[in-house]
């Protein structure tokens, strides 16, 4: 019975993926990729992983698609020499080989896969968290998430380093070329408040139900971008102290709590028993804030060297 729903989803995903790879107009390929992101979101729901579905749609399909849309116009500048038919055939054969190998592995992987679910279940109460995924993210594998925020920060520094403005005081280039029209203004005025509410809810509920810092941060970033595009909010001056503090808040709050762990608890990134939940929430607030700012700034791009 479930095949009835899974097979079409799979076929749509493959069709969209082939369209994204097939070539032709860059804009169409990016649109296909955004559809791919959404379809993957449904598939993650089918795999009983709502947290990942949210992330896939918000970050994988949404903001990544948005960033790729910006690049759609410039693709032609990096076009290299085409390859002959023989190459295409070889590539196809190798791709089929990869498919065969991976399919064999997926089929051969032990059916009741060896899993850490029981261990997470037994240790979750110690973290006062309801949502196991957030538990893994913030407590059991806290180092990965800490590094995650640092990766975002370094990627942003990398994007900024491309600008001619040595001290990055300027503002990024405008997202929407034309002066904001009435429809955009109306859309922003209605959707942004709702979006911000949803973002904060997503982050807040993340402790016990699917949601979390990344998903909430992504929605908040999207709303900020919409407000900037509609002209309700000026594009931020990237040299601003408040902006940079917000950027640094996530990773360094997490680091601070981690270092405190040595003295208050018994290891780096270990939460003292009494106040685990509030401490985690505080850390998540900082992380969500810096993720939202970082994602938005990554889409906005490097400072354009103008003070305007």
């Amino acid at each position: 019975m479930s095949l009835l729903l899974d097979a079409p989803l799979a076929l749509v995903a493959i069709a969209v993926a082939i369209r994204a790879v097939a070539g032709g107009d860059a804009f169409a390929r990016v649109a296909a990729f955004m559809a791919y992101g959404l379809v993957l979101g449904f598939i993650w729901v089918r795999l009983a992983a709502p947290d990942v579905a949210l992330t896939e749609i918000a970050v994988g399909g949404g903001i990544t698609g948005l960033v790729l849309l910006q690049a759609a116009g410039d693709a032609r500048f990096s076009r290299e020499r085409g390859v002959g038919l023989l190459y295409h055939v070889c590539a196809a054969i190798l791709a089929l080989g990869v498919f065969a190998a991976l399919a064999a592995v997926v089929l051969l992987l032990p059916e009741p896969a060896p899993s850490l679910a029981p261990q997470v279940a037994t240790n979750l109460p110690a973290t006062d968290l309801g949502n196991p995924v957030t538990g893994v993210l913030i407590v059991f594998r806290a180092l990965d998430t800490l590094l995650e925020t640092v990766v975002l920060l370094v990627a942003l520094i990398g994007v900024w380093s491309l600008s001619p403005d040595p001290l990055w005081r300027g503002r990024p280039a405008p997202l929407w070329p034309a002066p904001p029209s009435g429809a955009l203004d109306f859309l922003a005025r209605v959707v942004v408040p709702v979006g911000v509410l949803v973002g904060i809810y997503l982050f807040w509920a993340g402790a016990d139900v699917p949601g979390g810092a990344f998903q909430g941060g992504a929605v908040l970033a999207a709303m900020a971008l919409l407000a900037i595009m509609a002209g309700l909010m000026p594009a931020p001056a990237l040299g601003g102290r408040r902006l940079r503090l917000a950027l640094l808040a996530g990773p360094f709050a997490f680091l601070g709590v981690g270092i405190a762990g040595w003295f208050v608890a018994d290891a780096f990134l270990d939460y003292p028993d009494g106040i685990t939940k509030p401490l985690i929430i505080a850390v998540e607030v900082a992380i969500t804030a810096s993720i939202a700012v970082a994602l938005a700034l990554l889409v906005l791009g490097p400072p354009a060297g103008r003070k305007a």
């Binding site: 009983a48 992987l109 059916e111 009741p112 896969a113 679910a117 029981p118 538990g135």
Partner: peptide
């Protein structure tokens, strides 16, 4: 998904 168990729909790690 295959590692589901102990009350979770899928292995959280």
């Amino acid at each position: 998904r295959r590692g589901a168990g102990a009350g979770f729909g899928a292995d959280p790690v």
